[in-house]
Amino acid sequence: MLILECPYCGVMADETDLHGGGEAHLKRYGPGSSDEDFQTYLFHRANPKGVHFERWRHVSGCGKWFHAARNTMTLEVYGTYSAQTYEPPKAIINAVKKKHPEWEGPNMGEAK
């Protein structure tokens, strides 16, 4: 039962107020894309043991989607941020690196 801070409402929202939306920062491939790119977009999802960027919707709150940088093992939340970005903000990256200097950074929208 996680709690995540909704970056829009500023409240610590209970997991039951939220709806999980899977991996964040996917790049959409539409008509004209290769079968491989499209397949990756549609089906391939990262499932890391450790740092993960996720989509969440504050479904019974403000209704907005946001992103969370979270550790799937320790459940630590490095931060939540607007969904309206193509990659995690610098502050979030720094927060992760501070805890995990060896972390290589997010793997954005590429085949995994």
Partner: peptide
């Protein structure tokens, strides 16, 4: 699940009551 104990007049909380949004 909202912390109603700390709510004061003037605050609006959107959350869930049992199985519905409210």
């Amino acid at each position: 699940p909202a912390d109603t104990a700390v709510m004061v007049p003037g605050q609006l909380r959107r959350t869930r009551v049992a199985q519905i949004p409210a």
